[in-house]
């Protein structure tokens, strides 16, 4: 299963730059990222190349960081995947894209989602990129 980080950030100039700066300084590569905001704060969700290091480092910086399991699927056959999931009643909470032609999705029932996607001949990647 693929791990995604989500970090609570204040919605003000420099906060995201600060986070990215910390990752870069520690040699951590961001493979995908999505931002959701509400008022004065937001959540940055991302997939990175070194989970353990990223987690330790963000905790060290006193960030409110969370890890969640997500699925990585093919971007090209996204329409098909989304339809497949809707047919079996799996909801997608949020999604964002990766630059290697893949998409990150967070579903409400992973087991059911994986089963439906594989049965429809759609790929669920075991690795990030």
């Amino acid at each position: 299963m693929i791990k995604q980080f989500s970090v609570f950030l204040e919605n003000s100039p420099g906060r995201l730059a600060n986070l990215m700066g910390i990752l870069e300084k520690n040699g951590i590569k961001v493979l995908a990222m999505g931002i959701a905001e509400a008022g004065n704060y937001g959540i940055v969700r991302m997939i990175v190349d070194n989970d353990e290091k990223a987690f330790d480092m963000m905790r060290k910086e006193n960030m409110s960081v969370n890890q969640a399991e997500v699925l990585i699927i093919e971007l090209e056959r996204l329409a098909n995947a989304v339809k497949t999931l809707s047919v079996v009643g799996v909801n997608i909470d949020y999604a964002y894209t990766m630059d290697c032609g893949r998409a990150v999705i967070k579903v409400n029932n992973e087991e059911k989602a994986i089963k439906a996607l594989s049965e429809a001949g759609l790929k669920v990647y075991p690795t990030k990129c």
Partner: peptide, 18 residues
């Protein structure tokens, strides 16, 4: 300040806390 232990990936949880 929110707690460092606030674990969520959903914006709705944070809006709800507020």
């Amino acid at each position: 300040e929110i707690s460092e232990d606030f674990k969520t990936d959903r914006l709705t949880d944070i809006v709800d806390l507020q």
